[in-house]
Design a protein around this nucleic acid. Structure first.
Length: 890
RNA sequence: GCCCCUGUGGCGGAAUUGGUAGACGCGGCAGACUCAAAAUCUGUUGCCUUCACGGGCGUGCUGGUUCGAGUCCGGCCAGGGGCACCA
């Protein structure tokens, strides 16, 4: 990298005639940015060695899905991560900052069908495009570690992990209910079912019982829950969401004796309850339509069978459930109440009881559960209140339309009467634990979780094949590790419904590894969330011939700072926490959590524009005019006014997207990065506005102009009269700023750090305006400009390099250590304290910083305004908070 | 329905964590430079009142704690998010 010309834009013939001396040429990011990117790349400074002795720091942004183009959200995400990476590198850490591609998934198959391209070609083409776009951002990434999850090498290791999980009983096959799209002949994830219909086919989704692969995430329910407390650098919100998702509840499993035995001969019905205190309020029992008792009774009862079939037909979508009435079918069976001799409760099959929670059966207490109450009203069952709210007279208390869920004392409950809910629960639990029924306790305390095992089977082509073989005689046989990877076939027919791997003519037919007889491969592929559950570990040793190099993974993990969208609060972040545990159990690493620090960034949102015909116009198609505070938007082509609508998340359907490459083409990457990081706190949504981008760009140009001006000024041999007296002040602001920016970057408060840099720029601008000529002032400005450049480098790395070079340095800012704060400059020798009278600010007091409290108090009472307001009377009290404030009370 | 978060100028937001509310930016207004425009620079910009000095009000509303509250506590209102037949 030689010389300094080329950063300036010398376009226009006039420039050559004017004197170049004071005419500040505009900074030209289009010329400068690629050049500095090349310089960094040549110097290899972002390549991370695993053997570097410095302390390690791993910063990672959620890797992108290669959809085709980067969008503005990526720019925000990666700009934040890059500030952290560059800052921590300057602070002396060996920083790992890698990038890869979450490359399997259904969009590639859809694109393949629509455009007659192979999913692989489509995906890798997109990766190439997006890699190029990311590189124009000037991110300090170690590209040597790049991989895509659809790389054979990556999914081979993932298959190996699967086999290890299978061996550790953390992967298993079971039959379960899934969303089945009868037209596309595939399983759909819950998110892909919209209003009960398949998102692509529009067909009504059925609940179908299918044999699927699962990961046993529930083996870690308790650990996943309790370890949330250790994640003190995660947003409380995300921890709370995971807490609720895992959903621990402590209750009692209770066995009720059947009055007459079930068809199977069983003489009991087991339920689960967290409100066993309300046992005396029970008025019915209800089992799920999928409960074995329901199934066996239905064999001899066609009405019941019809009822069960009806329940199954009803969808499970949120909308369906919300409107669904509570329905039941009286089986005619009865149970004995455990505490009330002679009391019998009817057993219903009810549509609102879930099979996969607790035991699939409940006792209904209408007084204190809304669903039970709705049900009881429907079928005229008794409603007995057993919890009396505080300060309520029993005679006045009745349950009408709403169940009572609050605190209180027990009534109508024999030996429980007068107890609190907690006491009653304990008493009931103890009694039922001691009661014996068929030689076992009638009640057992049990902790339940809402969390379900993770179904990972997908009937799709573009994913990681599940490496097992089904053999008629040997059952499920794992593919031997030596035979991995199970490769995806290239020739695949995607147009027709169903699983492409299943109807491939030859792919699935193999010999059983055990007996050698003909067998078939598993044709399901893995959920793409599996791919993203361990990629951060792979980055630590991306070329390893095993999934990880355990020592290397242990040295780098957990990720020190992970940054991404809140939409993954549960899915990806919970799956990754499971995977770390599973990989630990199978010896691939030995850490307890994947991400020590998590930051969830806000979205980028934009105004919407709507034409008269209610079609949407994109920001590129309109021009916003502003007159006397009124804003109106006009379509450029037609001149028609369009309506300015709400600020919303950028989406294709609203057409309110902006293409980051357009911004970078016209303003440069530094402007885009600066705009993304200034103004809005990073965890909140940022509104994309033309004015905001232009403002950021103005700052970029202003910095460059300042540096230009300074290089001229400091070389000026004919000094104008020196008026500067502020060198000390400038040095102080520079070091104050440094301390604040350091704090801001360290705590990811980029907007505050940027504001502090602006303040310093203003101070330097004032300094330049004074045309400083004495050595001290010149040195102060030289120092302040240098510090400013080093501080802004994490945000605007290209501009920083250009300025640094312009000032005559020949090293790269990217390789410089973070400057050290001179703390002696942060100490003030005099302070200006606000003086309050009766809590209202009335004046100021300037006094030596080391003045004693008495001196401050005395000086405050001497102030004109204080004397005037006291008017001779003595103050009741004078509060002096050192270095903060004085408050005179009278 | 349950749980959680957030309410500060025209706008995005800052506020040393209980101590000068409105840093910084955007927008507005006025001015300089220019034949003119763009670019740039300077000043100004919470609201009310006053010729001015000054004074009053002000962080969603309301009550409280405190010498002092944007910050802490209670009640309400509004907006946003998560979960949702989980017994």
């Amino acid at each position: 990298m030689e010389g300094s010309t080329g950063e300036e834009n010398r376009s226009g013939t006039n420039d050559e005639l004017t004197t170049p001396k004071m005419a500040s040429e505009r900074y030209n990011p289009q010329a400068a940015e690629p050049r500095w990117q090349a310089a960094w790349s040549e110097a290899g400074i972002f390549r991370t060695s695993n053997d570097d002795p410095r302390p390690r720091y791993y910063v990672l942004e959620m890797f992108p899905y290669p959809s085709g183009r980067i969008h503005i959200g990526h720019v925000r995400n990666y700009a934040m991560g890059d500030v952290v990476a560059r800052f921590m590198r300057a602070k002396g850490y060996n920083v790992l900052h890698p990038m890869g591609w979450d490359a399997f998934g259904l969009p590639a198959e859809n694109a393949a069908i629509a455009n007659q391209v192979h999913p692989r070609a489509w995906t890798y083409d997109n990766i190439a495009t997006m890699r190029g776009q990311l590189q124009t951002m000037g991110l300090s990434l170690d590209w040597s570690r790049e991989f895509a999850t659809c790389d054979e090498d990556y999914y081979a290791q993932q298959q190996r992990l699967f086999l290890d999980l299978l061996g550790a009983d953390l992967a298993y096959r079971k039959s379960s209910k899934v969303n089945w799209d009868p037209v596309d002949q595939t399983v759909l994830a819950n998110e892909q079912v919209i209003d009960g219909r398949g998102w692509r086919s529009g067909a009504e989704v059925e609940q179908r019982e299918l044999t699927q692969w699962f990961f046993r995430i529930t083996a870690y329910s308790d650990d996943l829950l309790t370890a949330l407390e250790t994640l003190d650098r995660w947003p409380a919100k995300v921890r709370l969401m995971q807490h609720n998702w895992i959903g621990r509840s402590d209750g009692l499993r209770i066995r009720f004796a059947l009055v007459e035995p079930a068809p199977s001969g069983s003489d009991e019905l087991e339920v689960y309850s967290t409100r066993h205190d309300t046992l005396f309020g029970a008025s019915f029992m209800a089992v799920s339509p999928d409960h074995t008792l329901a199934t066996e009774l239905a064999e001899a009862n066609s009405n019941l069978a019809a009822f069960i079939a009806e329940c199954r037909r009803a969808g499970t979508s949120a909308a369906t459930i919300e409107t669904a009435e509570k329905k039941g079918f009286d089986t005619g069976l009865r149970v004995h109440h455990p505490f009330q001799d002679g009391k019998q409760l009817p057993v219903f099959v009810a549509n609102f009881v879930l099979m996969d929670y607790g035991t699939g059966a409940i006792f209904g207490c209408p007084g204190h559960d809304q669903r039970d109450l709705d049900f009881a009203r429907q079928y005229d069952l008794p409603v007995v209140p057993v919890v009396l709210p505080p300060d309520t007279v029993e005679a006045d208390f009745a349950i009408a339309g709403e169940a009572y869920l609050g605190e209180g004392r027990m009534i109508n409950s024999a030996f429980l009467n007068g107890l609190t809910i907690a006491e009653a629960k304990e008493t009931v639990a103890q009694r039922l634990e001691q009661a014996t029924m068929s030689q076992a306790p009638q009640g057992v305390r049990q902790t339940n979780y809402r969390l379900r095992d993770w179904g990972i089977s997908r009937q799709r082509y573009w994913g990681c094949p599940i490496p097992v073989i089904h053999c008629k005689s040997d059952g499920v046989v794992p593919v031997p590790v030596g035979d991995l990877p199970v490769r995806l076939p290239d020739d695949v027919e995607l147009g027709r419904p169903g699983n492409p791997l299943d109807h491939h003519p030859t792919w699935k037919h193999v010999a059983c590894p055990k007996c050698g007889k003909p067998a078939v491969r598993e044709t399901d592929t893995m959920d793409t969330f599996v791919d993203s559950s361990w990629y951060f570990a792979r980055f630590t040793a991306p070329g390893a011939s095993t999934p990880t190099e355990p020592e290397t993974a242990n040295a780098w993990l957990p990720v020190d700072q992970y940054i991404g969208g809140i939409e993954h609060a549960i899915l990806h972040l919970l799956y990754s926490r499971f995977f770390i545990r599973a990989m630990r159990a199978t010896g691939h690493l030995d850490v307890s959590e994947p991400f020590a620090g998590l930051f969830t960034q806000g979205m980028v949102v934009h105004e919407t524009y709507r034409r008269d015909d209610s079609s949407w116009a994109s920001p590129a198609e309109i021009r916003v005019e502003e007159q006397a505070g009124d804003r109106r938007a006009v379509e450029i082509d037609t001149g028609n006014e369009v309506e300015i609508g709400a600020v919303e998340k950028m989406s294709k359907s609203r057409r309110n997207t902006v293409d980051p490459t357009d911004i970078m083409d016209s303003y440069g990457a530094d402007t885009a990065r600066l705009f993304m990081l200034s103004d809005s706190p990073p965890d909140r949504d940022v509104i994309w506005t033309e004015d905001g981008v232009a403002g950021a760009h103005r700052f970029v140009q202003r910095i460059w102009r300042m540096v230009e001006e300074w290089t001229v000024l400091r070389a000026d041999p004919a000094p104008p009269p020196d008026k500067s007296a502020s060198s000390h002040t400038l040095r102080k602001s520079a070091h104050h700023t440094l301390a604040a920016v350091e704090e801001g970057f360290g705590s990811l408060r980029f907007n505050v750090a940027v504001a502090k840099i602006y303040e310093l720029a203003n101070a330097i601008g004032n300094g330049l305006a004074e045309r400083p000529q004495d050595d001290r002032s010149r040195a102060a400005i030289e120092e302040a400009i240098g510090l400013m450049i080093e501080m802004m480098a994490p945000v605007m790395p290209h501009l920083a390099e250009a300025c640094w070079r312009r000032l005559g340095h020949d090293d790269l800012v990217a390789t410089r250590p973070w400057p050290t704060v001179d703390h002696s400059l942060l100490v003030e020798d005099t302070l200006t304290l606000p003086v309050q009278i009766n809590g209202k600010k009335r004046g100021e007091l300037t006094i030596a910083a080391d003045a004693s409290q008495v001196e401050v108090e005395t000086a405050a009472l001497e102030l004109d305004i204080v004397r005037r307001m006291l008017d001779g009377q003595p103050p009741k009290k004078v509060v002096v908070v050192p270095k903060r404030i004085v408050n005179v009370v009278f």
